[in-house]
Design a protein around this nucleic acid. Structure first.
Lengths: 233, 233
DNA sequence: TGCAGCATGTGAACTCTTTCACTAACTATA
DNA sequence: TATAGTTAGTGAAAGAGTTCACATGCTGCA
């Protein structure tokens, strides 16, 4: 075999089947928000450079993120604000409204129910659950609290698509199983534990303590690790 | 002259510049929590394999994470649970209690004030601020709400180290500036905007909408699960 | 119409993170 | 004490994600 080199030539086509990273998706969310503000200010066009400087990123990063999904800009000019906003919203699946349920009306669940940003950004809270008899049946910030005993039935009846889980860690898995059995495929959980779910169910965890611990780590080290990634996830 | 020892010619030891990644820190937090549970169950020793399987990681990942900070295990046996817990807590700066202030007692701030996990994990909420006269002076979940007008003075007086910012995005930067001027170097913010801070101030952002949008992205893609199709053609 | 200037889109290089694969070292047992 | 079995620690390889650099192609103006 003369061409030993050849066997390593195969990967020439390193084209991964387009796996989009978490970071890219998160940045799209951030671009989207900025574009909303720009649109409100009647800005018509924005370059990757401007977009990047506002978000503390590199222009290349912005262009690369967008390029995964298509070509939305015009060379020599930049990106059309309104149009790009619509495109990104489409990519993120925000061209429809989503039906949400909040499970658990403790401190966090309560905050979620009252969170005004949700409806503003396309998320309609349709159901609120708790297991506390004193709460069940009463209105909480305008929403009737349902008995968690009827969780599955109600989720199905209201065709809930995404659930925010704000219950104690001790019951989180148990409730997750019910939620999944009701066909819900998106879960935003605040319980600091790993949730077991089928592969086609997506879970995102919001963990404030973890972020605080990141801060204590950074503050204790006292040596700055990476000056510029403050605030990025 | 010795041969290999002596030279600048060798591009040299890949200086591990001790750059610890975000992910590693987050995983340490998760290990720590698990170790707490194990300790409560009187588990004395745990291997990287066991630790990994519980957290859905690889054993190599666990060992690598820990190896950045030292050698805590025993070959052939594993890691001593209680000891490792103390070590990780130390790494994360959790060998002391931290003084926290919550700014903004709306939906989210209110949840934070009542969040029982904070004191349990070493974070003492010392101050709570708001700008609403109806709230100022009253007790909110056992804590007196201070006037945000006195923000700087109070932060200094109580030697607050970390602030949780739960205020509208429109005033977040302004308040951040004050917080920073009071010597606070750790900020956990819930406002969905970039905060400008000096380099020695650490900011972590908690953004529920962003996580929800991640879910809608995932759910949308999956719904249209055509083989090669990720977005537009 | 032609030209100058800009900004996109993108392969390639680079950097960071994860996984692999192997050695060193300890435990347990006889 | 020797031996079998297990597991930590760690360079190196592989894999991801980010940045570079430049050709392409559009805009605006004379």
């Amino acid at each position: 075999m003369t061409d030993t080199e050849n066997k390593s030539e195969a990967p020439a086509k390193t084209r991964t089947p387009k796996q989009i990273s978490d970071s890219t998706i998160h940045r799209l969310s951030r671009y989207l928000r900025l574009l909303g503000a720009l649109e409100a200010d009647s800005v018509k066009t924005i370059s990757s450079k401007e977009l990047a400087s506002i978000k503390r990123l590199t222009p290349a990063q912005v262009r690369k993120d967008l390029s995964f999904f298509g070509s939305f800009g015009t060379r020599g000019l930049g990106y059309p604000v309104s149009e790009l906003k619509v495109k990104i919203a489409g990519i993120l699946g925000l061209d429809k409204r989503w039906r949400l349920a909040i499970i658990g009306v403790g401190n966090i669940g309560s905050a979620l129910v009252g969170h005004k940003e949700f409806p503003e950004r396309g998320f309609d809270i349709r159901l609120v659950f708790d297991n506390d008899q004193r709460k069940i049946g009463s209105k909480h910030k305008g929403l009737l609290v349902s008995d968690i005993k009827n969780l599955k039935e109600e989720l199905l009846a209201h065709e809930i698509e995404i659930v925010a889980l704000a219950v104690p860690a001790s019951v989180a898995q148990e409730i997750t199983d019910i939620v999944v059995s009701a066909g819900v495929r998106g879960i935003l959980t605040f319980a600091p534990i790993h949730l077991n779910t089928p592969e086609n169910v997506f879970v995102r965890r919001e963990d404030m303590t973890m972020e605080l611990e990141y801060l204590t780590f950074a503050l204790s080290i006292n040596a700055v690790k990476s000056p510029n990634d403050l605030g990025l996830s």
